[in-house]
């Protein structure tokens, strides 16, 4: 069964949305969209470095993503007016990555695969990384769940209950770096943020509690992956962007339904 490329693609996408439903909800609640952009754009630099030094792709990408996530978390912790700095970082990371890629022979040809994903080409070893990473992220979030939610609702209240909001922010940053690393083969660096934000945004209107929102976001992610792959097969469109298009359509539908 795993020998069928469509089955592998579907499993890869479903593995990713297991993690993005929950993490994406946090990205929306905490207004971390730029955070996602910075970290995922930095992943291109990770890809270039991995190729240049013959390092395993996922490890190289993860290392650079973790570095960027820590840098952004540190900057965000320094004040509210970090919008511009985050914008600068997000786009500079992409530019530096693209320049670095030009120095690596052979990678230029494959660049599209890392910018927009190449989900139809994932192998069995990719599946191990993707599901392993998603399981790690889910385990982290479940372990810290009550504390993460409390720190997201209000940091002052959380501190009074003995929670360290900085530590919880660090947990989310690391989880984000892992998701970026596992998503790069699936939707590519440019669309990782979309997989985080769009299903969660679509889930907002139907949800009454944080847990419901995570559930609906995961469901929207599953529908997007399966619908996007099906559309891509039928219409011969690029798979990664097709998945995001379906997610955007669900979001648009949710707006109509939500307004009643």
């Amino acid at each position: 069964m795993l020998d069928d490329f469509m089955v592998r693609a579907a499993l890869a996408g479903l593995g990713l949305v297991m993690a993005t439903g929950a993490l994406g909800s946090f990205v929306v609640w905490r207004r971390m969209a730029y955070f996602g952009d910075s970290t995922s754009h930095a992943a291109i630099l990770g890809v270039a470095l991995s190729f240049a030094f013959a390092f395993p792709l996922y490890l190289g990408t993860l290392a650079v993503a973790v570095g960027m996530a820590l840098l952004v978390a540190w900057l965000t912790g320094r004040g509210q007016s970090m919008d511009t700095v985050l914008g600068v970082l997000a786009h500079s990371a992409l530019a530096v990555g693209l320049v670095a890629v030009s120095f690596v022979p052979g990678l230029r040809v494959d660049l599209d695969a890392f910018l927009f994903g190449d989900i139809l080409a994932v192998g069995k070893d990719d599946l191990v990384w993707i599901w392993g990473g998603a399981a790690l992220v889910l385990a982290l979030l479940i372990w810290r769940w009550q504390r993460l939610i409390a720190a997201t609702v209000n940091e002052e209240l959380a501190m009074a209950s003995g929670i360290d909001p900085k530590f919880e922010r660090l947990i989310l940053s690391l989880a984000l770096a892992v998701v970026v690393a596992i998503a790069i083969r699936i939707v590519g660096a440019l669309l990782i943020s979309a997989m985080l934000i769009v299903p969660a945004a679509a889930a907002r209107g139907f949800s009454r509690t944080p847990e419901q929102m995570v559930g609906f976001a995961t469901l929207a992610g599953i529908i997007s992956v399966l619908g996007g792959l099906w559309g891509s097969l039928r219409l011969d469109t690029p798979a990664g962007p097709s998945i995001v298009v379906v997610a955007a359509m669900i979001y648009a539908l949710s707006l109509v339904t939500y307004r009643r």
Binding site: R31, V153, L157, R204, R208, T209, P210, Q212
Partner: peptide, 14 residues
């Protein structure tokens, strides 16, 4: 953007 009922809020963090 964070959906939250009064009941759920009272159960944070304990």
């Amino acid at each position: 953007a964070l959906p939250m009922t009064v009941r759920r809020f009272l159960s944070l963090p304990v």
